Amino acid sequence: TGYYDVLGVKPDASDNELKKAYRKMALKFHPDKNPDGAEQFKQISQAYEVLSDEKKRQIYDQ
């Protein structure tokens, strides 16, 4: 599964769309709200870390 799929956004998503999707998913799977969501929360955080950084995103998109 790709990072875009993890966040539920298209590859041409804007920074604002990425942030909005990340916040929505992070709230849904945060371990405090969803004890079984810890692994998914890590994936969401990693996806956002890469896609929100312009240089990392360019490398990922290659």
Rank of each mutant, 00 (worst) to 15 (best):
Q46C: 12
D5G: 09
N34P: 06
Q40K: 14
G8V: 02
E39I: 08
N34D: 10
Q62E: 10
S52E: 05
K24S: 09
K55H: 12
Y3E: 02
R23D: 15
Q46A: 07
Q43Y: 13
L7Q: 01
S52I: 14
V9R: 00
K28H: 09
R57V: 04
F29P: 00
F41N: 01
K42P: 07
L27T: 08
N16Q: 14
F29E: 02
K20N: 13
P31Q: 08
D53S: 08
N16M: 15
L7W: 01
L51S: 00
N16P: 06
E17L: 03
A13Q: 01
Y4D: 04
S45T: 15
Q40C: 15
D12Q: 05
K20V: 12
Q40N: 06
E17F: 00
N16H: 15
A38P: 04
V6F: 05
Y60S: 01
L27H: 09
D12T: 12
S45Q: 15
L27C: 14
K19G: 06
M25N: 05
R23W: 13
H30K: 05
A21P: 00
T1C: 15
K55V: 13
Y4E: 02
K42M: 12
D32E: 09
I59L: 12
K56G: 04
L51R: 00
G2Y: 15
V50I: 11
F29H: 05
E54W: 14
A26F: 15
D15H: 15
Y4S: 01
H30A: 10
K24I: 13
Q46M: 13
R23V: 14
K56M: 07
K55S: 10
K10A: 10
D36V: 06
P11G: 03
A38Y: 11
E54T: 14
S14Y: 02
S14T: 14
D5K: 11
K24R: 11
K55N: 08
D53V: 07
P31C: 11
A13H: 03
F41S: 02
P11L: 06
F41T: 02
I59M: 13
K33L: 14
Q62C: 11
P11N: 05
K24L: 13
A38W: 13
V6K: 03
R23G: 12
K24Y: 10
Y22G: 00
A38I: 11
I44Y: 01
Y60I: 04
K55A: 11
E54Q: 12
E39P: 06
A26G: 05
D5V: 09
K24W: 09
F29G: 01
K42V: 07
A13S: 04
A38D: 08
M25W: 08
L7N: 01
E49V: 07
D61Y: 05
A21C: 06
D53W: 04
L51I: 01
Q43A: 13
F41R: 03
Q58Y: 13
D36Y: 07
R57T: 04
D5R: 08
Y4N: 04
L7C: 06
I59K: 08
A47C: 04
M25Q: 09
N16C: 15
Q43M: 14
Y4V: 02
Q58W: 10
G2T: 15
D12I: 05
L51V: 04
Q62D: 08
Q58R: 14
K33N: 13
D5S: 09
L18D: 01
P35F: 03
Y22F: 14
K24N: 13
A38Q: 11
S14L: 05
K55P: 03
A21H: 03
G2H: 14
K20Y: 08
I59P: 04
P31T: 09
S14W: 02
D32V: 08
D53C: 09
V6D: 03
Q40T: 08
Y22I: 05
K55R: 14
F29S: 01
A21E: 00
N16T: 12
S14Q: 02
V6G: 00
Q43S: 07
S52K: 07
Q46G: 03
F29C: 08
E39A: 09
A47S: 04
Y3I: 04
K33R: 13
H30P: 02
P35S: 06
Q46E: 14
Q58M: 10
Q62G: 08
K28L: 13
K33I: 14
E49L: 10
A13R: 00
N34C: 10
K33M: 11
D61R: 05
S52G: 08
H30W: 05
P35H: 05
T1Y: 15
E17K: 05
K33Y: 14
T1R: 14
E49Y: 13
L7M: 06
P11Q: 08
D15W: 15
D5W: 13
Y48E: 01
D32Q: 09
K19Q: 14
D36W: 12
A26P: 00
Q62A: 13
P11S: 09
F29N: 04
M25I: 06
G8P: 00
A26E: 08
K33W: 11
T1D: 10
D36L: 10
D5P: 04
K20C: 13
Q62T: 08
Q40W: 13
Q40L: 14
G2K: 12
Q46T: 11
E54P: 15
D36C: 11
K19M: 12
Y60Q: 02
K28C: 13
K24P: 03
A38T: 08
Q58P: 06
I59A: 11
Q58V: 09
A13C: 14
L51P: 04
Y22K: 02
L18C: 04
Q58C: 12
V50P: 03
K42G: 05
D15C: 14
K55T: 14
S52R: 12
N34I: 05
F41E: 03
K19W: 12
M25D: 02
G8A: 05
V50C: 08
A13F: 06
I59S: 11
Q40V: 10
V6N: 01
A26L: 15
T1I: 13
Y60M: 04
E54Y: 13
F29L: 03
K28M: 10
Y3M: 03
V6L: 14
H30R: 07
F41Q: 02
Q46F: 11
Q62M: 11
L18N: 01
D53I: 03
D5I: 07
D61V: 03
K20F: 08
D32P: 09
S45M: 13
Q62P: 03
K10Q: 08
Q62K: 13
P31L: 07
D32R: 11
F41W: 15
D32T: 10
K28S: 06
L51D: 01
K10G: 10
L18G: 00
P31Y: 08
K42A: 10
K10Y: 07
N16F: 13
R23F: 14
Y22P: 00
F29T: 01
E54K: 15
E39F: 08
A13W: 01
V6E: 02
D61N: 07
M25A: 10
Q43C: 14
L51T: 03
Y3K: 02
T1L: 12
L7H: 00
L18K: 00
G37F: 15
F29M: 05
R57W: 02
D36I: 07
H30I: 02
A26C: 15
R23L: 15
A26H: 14
H30V: 01
N34Q: 04
Y4F: 07
K10C: 15
D12S: 11
R23C: 15
I44E: 01
S45W: 12
K28F: 07
Y48W: 11
K28N: 07
H30G: 07
K19H: 10
P11T: 12
G37C: 13
I59W: 13
N16V: 11
K56F: 06
A47P: 00
D36R: 08
S14G: 07
A26Y: 14
Q40E: 10
Q62Y: 06
D5T: 10
Q40F: 14
A38S: 09
V50M: 05
K33E: 06
K19T: 11
K56V: 03
E39L: 09
V9E: 02
R57H: 04
D61H: 05
Y48A: 00
L27S: 11
D61S: 03
P35W: 04
Y48S: 02
A21R: 00
F41I: 04
S52Q: 06
K55Y: 12
L18I: 15
K56W: 07
L7Y: 00
R23K: 14
P31I: 07
R57K: 05
T1H: 13
D12C: 15
S45E: 13
E39M: 08
L18T: 02
R23M: 15
Q40D: 05
A26I: 14
D15G: 11
F29K: 00
E49H: 12
K20P: 00
D12W: 14
L7V: 02
K10L: 11
P35G: 06
Y48P: 01
P31F: 08
D53M: 02
I44S: 00
K56A: 10
Q43D: 04
L27E: 14
K55I: 12
F29I: 03
Y22V: 00
Y3D: 00
A38R: 08
Y60T: 02
K20R: 13
Q58N: 09
Q40P: 06
Y4M: 00
P11H: 06
